[in-house]
């Protein structure tokens, strides 16, 4: 045993700094959920603040605003998950049909780009483009349509959130499918050619069945995001006009907690989100590993 430790002590040492940082910045905040069960006063600290049990949780589930916020989060997130699962998959099928490599690579370069820009930049760009007299509305008017209040009407705001999120991320999402598609055995296509199959037949009978398992794993894992409607995006695009339908848990927690100082209520709402997220992520990983043999380790 002593010999063994002499050989492996550097391995523990290598892990030490990371472990310490995770304890301080991840595990201690996890214990901070206690704040949600207290009437937290910053000057009393977490240990001395009075314990109030489920008070804040009861308040949350009876408060129309909090319930609306949870509902908004769910609706926005679920649409992002569904549309965000379909678009990259469909787009890779079309991109996979391209034989000219230079063209394919150019398209890829262009569609990956928005993924690397943050929502501060994109929010700034989109609020300008989607303004009532912005470029998009000028275009709509040019086509003889009515102007749309993209960022001022609740339903349109949700639509804008989902569309712009998919716009930002779909290109990046195609990477994994294209990688899987290049891995398909070419002899399958050659055999199909001999049988007289056209591109459409080949896509339906070879490409799609080969990629479906990966698509299912990705879709399953993304269910863990069901209460992640995207703080950065919403925060940089919303305004009081659309709070009713566009305010989400994370923006609510930030406003109520850090701006208004209701630490306990905000923590309770955040804790609710973390617990739901945990259950979903744990379940989906379990499913993915059981049925698709997916492992992170």
């Amino acid at each position: 045993m002593k010999m063994y430790f002499r050989k492996t002590w550097p391995l523990h040492l290598f892990l030490l700094p990371s472990v310490l940082l995770l304890i301080v910045f991840n595990y201690i905040p996890m214990a901070g959920f206690l704040i949600g069960f207290e009437d937290f006063k910053p000057w009393l600290g977490i240990l001395k603040s009075p314990f109030v049990g489920l008070k804040h949780f009861k308040f949350m589930f009876n408060d129309p605003t909090a319930i609306q916020v949870i509902w908004n989060t769910f609706i926005i997130a679920i649409f992002k998950i569904i549309v965000g699962a379909i678009v990259p998959f469909a787009f890779s099928l079309f991109l996979n049909e391209v034989r000219a490599m230079l063209f394919k690579r150019t398209i890829q370069s262009l569609i990956y780009l928005p993924h690397f820009l943050n929502w501060v930049i994109l929010g700034g760009i989109l609020t300008d483009l989607l303004a009532t007299n912005g470029l998009i509305n000028q275009l709509l008017e040019g086509l003889g349509l009515n102007r749309i209040f993209f960022l001022g009407s609740g339903d349109w705001f949700r639509f804008t959130l989902v569309t712009s999120d998919v716009w930002k991320e779909f290109g990046f999402g195609t990477i994994i499918y294209l990688a899987a598609m290049t891995g398909i055995n070419q002899s399958l296509y050659e055999a199909a050619d001999i049988d007289g199959a056209n591109n459409f037949n080949k896509a339906i009978h070879i490409t799609i069945p080969a990629v479906i398992p990966i698509a299912i794993v990705i879709a399953t894992l993304s269910l863990g995001n069901i209460l992640n409607a995207g703080f950065d995006q919403v925060y940089n695009m919303y305004n009081p006009l659309v709070y009713q339908k566009g305010d989400i848990i994370d923006t609510y927690v930030y406003r109520v907690g850090l701006l208004q100082g209701s630490f306990s209520l905000a923590t309770a709402v955040g804790f609710f989100k973390s617990v739901i997220g945990f259950v979903l992520i744990a379940t989906t990983y379990k499913l993915a590993s059981k049925y698709a043999n997916y492992r992170i380790f």
């Binding site: 201690i28 905040p29 901070g32 910053p42 973390s274």
Partner: peptide
Amino acid sequence: RYFRGRTVYAWFFVFTMLFHGGLIPTYLVV
């Protein structure tokens, strides 16, 4: 088999991906 404790470390790391303390506690720690 060589590095015992690896599994413990692995869970210790991965758990932080599954569960988050949330904004307010993290802010207070910082």
